Structure formats: C-alpha cells, structure tokens
Amino acid sequence: MYEVKASTGDRGEFELGESEVERASHLRPDETYTIVYVTHVLDNAHRRITPLPNPFSAPGLAGYRLVGTAMRLRFELPPG
C-alpha cells in the first residue's frame, strides 16, 4: 500500500488523517505501507520523490519527529 503526500515546498512535514493512521497501524502480516513524499510538486525542476517508512512499523517512527499533538474528545452535555 502506498500513501502519497505532496508539498509545494520541502518542509519535510505531512499529516496523516484518522483513516490513514487506522490503515497504517493495522496491517495484515502480508501487507506493507509506504508513504511517498513528493516535494515541490508544482515545480518540475525541483520535484523530488522520497519513499518513507510506515511510522507504525518497528523501525519507522525512529525516523520521524512528532510536530504537534492533537486530541479529539467527545462528551455528553448535562441536561439543561
């Protein structure tokens, strides 16, 4: 499986959505998941394609740094 992430620059940063995290973290033994990062996607002269490891694989997260933290919470409002 391949997940393509593209950038108009070369910041070396991307976001995985909820469904992408779910898929990348729950692979069957016969599946692989690779992120294909494309820099300068709109510039033919500077475009670069870099395969990156699944951040949920054993060695994968070692090559990444978490940039931010987000938390999505659900709750019930008290009657009122």
Rank of each mutant, 00 (worst) to 15 (best):
T69N: 01
P78Y: 15
E18R: 04
G12W: 06
L42K: 15
P29Y: 07
A58G: 08
G9A: 09
N44M: 03
P78I: 15
D10T: 06
Y33C: 10
H40Q: 03
E31S: 09
L42T: 14
A45E: 03
A58L: 14
R47D: 03
R65S: 04
K5W: 02
R74F: 12
L16P: 01
I49V: 09
A6M: 12
L27K: 09
P51A: 00
P59H: 14
I49S: 02
L77C: 13
V41A: 14
F56P: 00
T39K: 02
G60L: 09
E15M: 11
A24P: 05
R72T: 08
D30P: 00
I35R: 00
R48T: 06
P51N: 00
P79C: 07
D10A: 09
T32Q: 15
P51K: 00
E76V: 13
G63A: 12
M1Y: 15
P79A: 13
V67I: 07
R11W: 11
D43K: 05
E22W: 05
P51C: 00
G9H: 09
T69R: 04
E18P: 00
I35Y: 00
F14T: 05
H26C: 04
E18S: 08
Y33Q: 10
E3Q: 11
P59I: 14
T39E: 03
S7I: 08
R48V: 06
A62Q: 15
V67H: 09
G9Y: 06
V38P: 01
K5Q: 04
R72D: 04
I35W: 00
Y64M: 03
F14E: 03
D30L: 05
L27F: 10
T34Y: 05
N54K: 10
F14K: 06
T39C: 02
R65I: 02
R74N: 10
R11V: 06
E22T: 03
T69V: 02
K5I: 01
R47C: 06
S25L: 06
R74H: 13
G63M: 11
S25K: 12
A6G: 13
G80I: 13
A70K: 01
Y33V: 08
E76R: 15
P59L: 14
P55S: 12
A24N: 06
R72Q: 08
H46L: 07
P79F: 09
E15R: 12
G80T: 15
G80P: 08
A24L: 13
L73K: 11
E20H: 08
T32I: 13
T8D: 10
A6F: 06
V4F: 06
D10N: 11
M1L: 15
Y33F: 15
V67R: 10
G80E: 15
A70E: 00
I49T: 06
M1C: 11
S57V: 12
H26I: 01
Y33E: 10
G68M: 01
M1P: 11
T32F: 12
N54C: 10
I49M: 04
Y2S: 10
T8N: 11
N54V: 08
A58Q: 14
A24D: 03
L42Q: 14
P59T: 15
H46M: 05
P55W: 10
K5S: 01
L52Q: 01
P79V: 10
M1Q: 14
F14H: 08
L73G: 07
Y64L: 03
I49E: 02
P78G: 13
I35F: 02
E3P: 04
S25R: 14
E18D: 05
F56V: 08
L42S: 13
T50R: 04
T39L: 01
